[in-house]
Design a protein around this nucleic acid. Structure first.
Lengths: 405, 405
DNA sequence: ATTCTTTTTTCGAGCAGTGAAATTAATGCT
DNA sequence: AGCATTAATTTCACTGCTCGAAAAAAGAAT
């Protein structure tokens, strides 16, 4: 559609969004600070915050007595999200576990359920039923003080269908083809959104470091899969299906190693845990990949390589080469200012760095603009959960509450 | 930067931009038609068009007597751009020629100069002087009725520097390193913008077909170089440097054929005219590429291949394979709804199609979502000039005139 | 000349944002 | 305690924008 008519309503929506966005990024702020953060006049901030408070979207926070080294003048009252106005249900669907979290509007974790997933889980129960059940359990457990769930967001792996109702393909067995997003939305009467895990990495990276918030960043996840999320000047690339990056399944070598996806020569087939394991133990490249690699086995390989084991070192070199050429090819299309490597494989980054650098050096863009800065980011902060949460809360801000009259 | 405060000024700017944009896309319209096209009320259209007419941005067109099969009711007065308010200078810098066109605000070509460029042209005269001279000539030739030049836009090949003042690298000899964009801007006191040629292809494609205007499209130029422009839901990717696509220099085969850029294994080294020629005549891949290939030689090769010549056929197969794998790799990062092939190589598309399809079939994205629709578009309509012009006029609309008070 | 019909303009209302002035709520000093 | 000082908010008067409804304009049809 593109551009739309602008009127006083859209002005208000924009500016309410600005206020909520500032609070989301910077935490509780006084009205004066909000004026500074948004660029709006004090008068407008007064009007907007009055509305938002009347609608119970935000609340005045009572000053914690000690916290402030009092200065002169009228003390500022901090404004923050009204945590009790609603919650979001966040579900992370992974190859071997499902984790559903309930967070309040302020971003505080309320409750969490974790369930293992096996290759047969979705053979016996539909994804819709499985998720609905989990959600019901979570709701009943927190029935006493119950702000309503406003949105459900699901992190998935694989390729989404165009409308984002389900997956066309997924490494999680029996999940593809089910329209569980749409079904769940209909069943719950709530908006349900599916996100590619790689996309959330990008969202998570944005919130991780303020310097990255408005930059162009490619975030590469290396672990049981290889995935990528990208932001372009602070905007996430890939709404719905278009722009969905399948970095892990970019072709590295025509007719190369067999990938879990069934194709041959994908980056993932060399750089995901199973790919590294396969090369390290000299298993033929055409052997069907293991369905899951225990964490300790991958870690052990890192240790061996660090200790100088030839086979392990070679395997990580191969992985680095695959990632490096993938990045070099990506950079011919999209040239981010920062590259982040996250996931279990981030620990193996030093083992892959030389090959990555070598591959990048063969790209014209790199020769001209210099090699990009690559940072391995150990994800103790759960970038996927972080991204899922921030994206969802931000959606509630901008879609549900910025527009409300 | 991101989001900005919205106030009544920005509302007017947005809506003025909407009006100008509708005129730019649909040609002259009546006020009623403008209201329908923009979604604004009649009252607002009256106010906005009154302003624009008072500022001489648009004018009421006198009805050509015969043109309208008169119906009842008050006859509509068409509004169109005031062609006399200004002109844009559009310069296409190519490997072997420079072409400077003067177009008026209505998009009508006023005058045009074409000058050959040789590998030594910019060894003897700075690009700034060369361009300033051309421009002065063009201006003096049209001195009599002279609407002022409002913007200068230059189509270049190569890699732009970050601020867009010049080129970091270019296939045009001696051009890289000169800040001719900035120098020219300072000298003329006008905004001068440099655009990558590939980017303009995307812009041109947008205006070529209304169906593509808001779609996600990748446009591939195949000829003396290989380049790509992309739009994402109607927005051009790659402002300034980031997102600048160097598709032609994406690595196809590590350590492969020598490319004009000096790297090895670029797609261009297989799919540009010189690459095809080299394979057809079995010249070693490490031979330095010819600086320019005469059009008839490339055309002759197409004819030979069509006639079944083995070497020529093989050369185009190689080219198709390079393009196909390039597209497959691109689609792992960015998955457009349409792929356009333009340029001299579009005629050779049938010769490359089988290999392109085969390569794409090895991409997971294609297996899941089906092969993308690839259309070879013979560029009789000059998409680059078209793109340069529309982009520049649209900039005048939105930047110079939408904001004006 | 009068009666449609369609296009434009005019008018009053409603809502946003802004700067300046007023108000509020503490602190500091006497 | 009383009053000046200071900083955060709110109030107020004003401007600009869009909108819907009604009025005006400009031909065509009768």
């Amino acid at each position: 559609m593109g551009r739309k008519v602008s009127d006083s309503d859209s002005v208000r929506r924009q500016n309410r969004g600005l206020v909520l966005g500032a609070l989301r990024v910077q935490g509780p702020l006084s009205r004066t600070a909000l004026a500074a953060a948004t660029g709006l006049s004090h008068a407008s901030i007064t009007a907007i915050t009055q509305d938002l408070i009347a609608q119970c979207v935000i609340v005045e926070l009572v000053a914690s007595e000690k916290s402030d080294a009092r200065s002169r003048g009228r003390p500022a009252t901090q404004l923050g999200f009204n945590r009790a106005i609603g919650t979001a249900a966040l579900l992370e669907l992974d190859v071997n576990r499902a984790r559903m979290s309930l967070v309040d509007y302020g971003g505080v974790l309320v409750d969490r359920i974790e369930t293992p997933i096996t290759p047969t889980t979705f053979a016996f129960i539909s994804a819709t039923d499985f998720l609905a059940e989990q959600l019901a359990h979570l709701q009943s457990r927190n029935a006493d003080d119950a702000p309503p769930i406003r949105r459900v967001a699901i992190s998935v792996q694989g390729i989404l269908d165009r409308p984002g109702h389900g997956l066309r393909w997924s490494p999680i067995a029996h999940l593809a083809g089910q329209s569980f997003g749409e079904e769940l939305a209909a069943q719950l009467g709530l908006p349900v959104t599916l996100y590619k895990r790689g996309r959330l990495l990008a969202e998570g990276a944005r919130w991780l470091d303020p310097a990255l918030h408005d930059a162009s960043v490619a975030t590469v996840f290396v672990g049981s899969t290889v995935a990528m999320g990208m932001t372009f000047r602070g905007q996430i690339l890939g709404r719905g299906d278009e722009g969905a990056t399948e970095f892990g399944h970019m072709n590295h070598i025509p007719n190369g190693a067999l990938c879990r996806c069934g194709m041959r020569g994908c980056i993932e087939a060399y750089a995901a845990d199973y790919g590294v394991l396969r090369s390290a133990y000299s298993v033929p490249e055409t052997t069907t990949p293991a369905p899951a690699v225990p964490a300790h086995e991958y870690d052990g390989l890192i240790v061996s390589a660090q200790a100088g084991d030839r086979n392990a070192t070679h395997a990580f070199n191969q992985a680095g080469r695959a990632i490096g050429f993938g990045l070099s090819r990506m950079m011919a299309v999209f040239d981010p200012a920062h590259i982040l490597i996250v996931g279990p494989g981030a620990r193996a980054f030093p083992l892959m760095q030389a090959e990555i650098t070598a591959a990048l050096s063969s790209a014209l863009v790199c020769r001209i603009n210099g090699l990009p800065e690559i940072i391995a980011h150990h994800d103790e902060k759960e970038p996927i959960f972080q991204g899922l949460m921030m994206k969802t809360l931000n959606d509630i801000d901008q879609i549900d509450f910025a527009a409300l009259v």
